[in-house]
Amino acid sequence: MPPAPPAPLQGPSPYPQWQPPRRRSNAGAVIGGLFGAIAVAFVGLIVVGAVIRGGHRSDPISPVALPTFTPYEARTSEPADPTPTETDSPEPTTGSTGAADTSGDSQTSENTTDTTDAQPRRVLNTSLKNNTLYRAGGLPRVSCPAGSANLYDNAQLKSVIMKTSRCLDKGWSQILRQQGIEWRRPGYALTSTRGRGACGDFPSAGSIVPYYCPRNETIYASTSAMVRGSGRSLGYGQLTNWHGGIVSMMAHEYGHHVQQLSGLSNTWWQQSLRSSSRSGRLALSRRFELQATCFGAMFMRSVSATYPVTPARRNTLYYFYSRVGDWAGAPRDHGSPANNNRWFRQGYEKNKTFQCNTWLAPASTTS
């Protein structure tokens, strides 16, 4: 992920630009000026209202990069993989689950490995649009009191991440297994500085983002980079000093693990390989990443009673996700800040896996 620039958030307006008519008389100019003043005043009221509701400073903030999924197939070299901090995940199957179905109807994969409950084998739909995962419903309420932690204390932050990772396990394992999707706990490799994982350096030079690597189903992260920033990239600690922001980002990474287990990852990757244009691949990447954000939000909702995520903290998360995503001049692979906010709110407020089906959503919501 390229570093976030220090310049204020910029980019094209999502609304159609209004083109004023040519002037024909002084009266027309006066009327045009009057409407222009009203429009400016209206926009100003919206901005002021947003600032008051969010309770945050009004100066613009550059968007901060989101965590990412790094397909190891794209790497030409295979770096040595450090021993994860905590893992009980076997090596995943590296082959494709089959050709992606662009209509989202026909791609399937048999789950034959989970025999612990002696249940009949199920045929899983691993397509993007009609995946078996979408039948899983919402995450159950999970007791997950996180306590307090200083973001700038690496040991405390790491402790919170690992503690909440068990809460992620409780919720996701339950609903995945109910649908016949084999569940495995992901590995975690956390460091206070930086390191080198199975899919490359973490974080990459000048970046802050952790990544999920499907090769060994491990989440890699640098606690100091995430909080303090790196190079020209802002840190998450510059958006909020509450650890819920970073935990929600780790829940985004766990969302990539859910995509891996359900077959969404392989299907997305195979479809990306077949895409004939860079813009097409970026569009697929945005839908993939925004879906992980939606899954992460589902988790934050599931633990809201005990974590706790109070209404004020929920608004902090909404603000947080309005400030993360792609920025002008960088690859459009994670979605705009507005759409990251949109999909986080979707997952938090709806808490249903099918509500996170970005593959059926309009392009305007995944830009």
Rank of each mutant, 00 (worst) to 15 (best):
Val47Gln: 01
Val48Arg: 13
Val48Gly: 15
Gly49Asn: 13
Gly49Tyr: 14
Gly49Glu: 13
Val51Gln: 07
Val51Glu: 07
Val51His: 02
Ile52Ser: 15
Ile52Met: 10
Ile52Cys: 14
Arg53Ile: 15
Arg53Gly: 12
Gly54Asn: 15
Gly54Leu: 09
His56Gln: 14
His56Val: 15
Arg57Thr: 13
Arg57Val: 08
Ser58Glu: 10
Ser58Ala: 14
Ser58Lys: 02
Ile61Pro: 04
Ser62Ile: 00
Ser62Asn: 02
Val64Pro: 01
Ala65Arg: 09
Leu66Gln: 07
Leu66Ser: 04
Pro67Met: 05
Thr68Val: 09
Thr68Gln: 12
Thr68Leu: 11
Thr70Arg: 05
Thr70Gly: 13
Pro71Thr: 12
Pro71His: 03
Tyr72Leu: 04
Tyr72Gly: 04
Tyr72Ala: 07
Tyr72Thr: 10
Glu73Gln: 09
Ala74Asp: 08
Arg75His: 11
Thr76His: 05
Ser77Leu: 07
Glu78Gln: 02
Glu78Ser: 03
Pro82Phe: 05
Pro84Cys: 10
Pro84Ser: 08
Thr87Lys: 11
Asp88Ser: 12
Asp88Cys: 07
Ser89Tyr: 00
Glu91Trp: 01
Pro92Val: 07
Thr93Leu: 08
Gly95His: 01
Ser96Gln: 02
Thr97Gly: 14
Thr97Gln: 01
Gly98Ile: 12
Ala99Met: 07
Ala99Glu: 06
Ala99Cys: 07
Asp101His: 14
Asp105Ser: 15
Asp105Cys: 13
Asp105Asn: 15
Ser106Val: 09
Gln107Pro: 01
Glu110Met: 11
Glu110Arg: 14
Asn111Arg: 04
Thr112Asn: 04
Thr113Lys: 05
Asp114Trp: 02
Asp114Pro: 10
Asp117Tyr: 09
Asp117Phe: 06
Ala118Asp: 08
Gln119Met: 11
Pro120Trp: 03
Pro120Asn: 01
Val123Gln: 11
Val123Gly: 05
Val123Pro: 01
Asn125Trp: 06
Asn125Tyr: 04
Thr126Arg: 09
Ser127Tyr: 01
Ser127Ala: 10
Asn131His: 07
Thr132Leu: 03
Thr132Gly: 02
Leu133Ala: 04
Tyr134Asn: 05
Tyr134Glu: 01
Tyr134Lys: 04
Arg135Asp: 07
Gly137Asn: 00
Leu139Asp: 02
Pro140Val: 09
Arg141Phe: 06
Arg141Asn: 09
Val142Pro: 06
Val142Thr: 12
Val142Ala: 09
Val142Phe: 02
Ser143Ala: 12
Ser143Leu: 00
Ser143Pro: 00
Cys144Ala: 09
